Computed example of a mutant assay.
Amino acid sequence: MTEQKNYYFWLFIEQELRDLQPAFAKYFPEHHLEWDCENYWEWLTDDQGTPEIPWLNINRPHQFVEGDGGCYEEPLVVNFTSPTMDTAAVLALAQRVSNGLNTTVFVGTQTYLQGDERSYHIDYELEPEK
């Protein structure tokens, strides 16, 4: 069995996750992204996956009142597994997202602390290319 590597990148953007669904569908064209939420989190996910990216989850704390903006200070996290992608491929994907959404994208690791708290370690910071 091929080892699955877990990858993270994140960004800060003042848009509702539901409104970003069409954009993320362009970056992950083989995935059927569906939006869902619970009390604290909202996410786009594809439970079917592909051979290259078998598991994909895009998430952040959600708005309790749509348009309130309270979650925009929280990172929108793209988390996925892949048995085939390497760092260069992940950076290329993150750069496409940075360019398309015109925002800085951070690539690195995420650590769960407790409850809904997470910490991030930045390995790469990608600015939109002109």
Rank of each mutant, 00 (worst) to 15 (best):
Q4N: 14
Q4H: 12
N6A: 12
N6I: 14
Y7W: 15
Y8D: 07
Y8Q: 06
Y8N: 07
Y8L: 05
F9M: 05
W10T: 02
L11P: 01
F12M: 07
I13P: 00
Q15K: 15
E16R: 09
E16L: 13
R18V: 11
R18K: 15
R18C: 08
R18D: 10
D19M: 11
L20C: 08
L20K: 08
L20Y: 04
Q21H: 07
P22N: 09
A23N: 14
F24M: 03
K26V: 14
K26D: 12
K26M: 12
K26H: 13
Y27H: 14
F28R: 00
P29T: 06
P29M: 09
H31S: 07
E34K: 13
W35I: 05
W35Q: 03
C37Y: 12
E38N: 15
N39D: 15
N39E: 15
Y40H: 12
Y40M: 11
Y40E: 09
W41Y: 10
W41Q: 05
E42I: 04
E42W: 04
E42V: 08
E42H: 09
W43N: 01
W43D: 02
L44H: 01
T45G: 10
T45Q: 14
T45Y: 06
G49V: 05
G49M: 06
P51M: 08
P54E: 05
P54L: 05
W55E: 13
L56S: 00
I58G: 01
I58A: 02
R60W: 06
H62G: 05
Q63E: 15
V65A: 11
G67P: 06
D68G: 02
G69A: 02
G70I: 04
G70H: 04
G70Q: 08
G70R: 00
G70C: 09
C71R: 01
C71Y: 02
Y72T: 00
Y72C: 02
Y72H: 08
E73D: 14
E73R: 13
E73I: 11
E74Y: 12
E74T: 05
P75D: 05
P75M: 04
L76A: 00
V78T: 06
F80N: 03
D86N: 15
D86M: 13
D86F: 12
T87M: 15
T87H: 09
A88G: 07
A88H: 12
V90A: 04
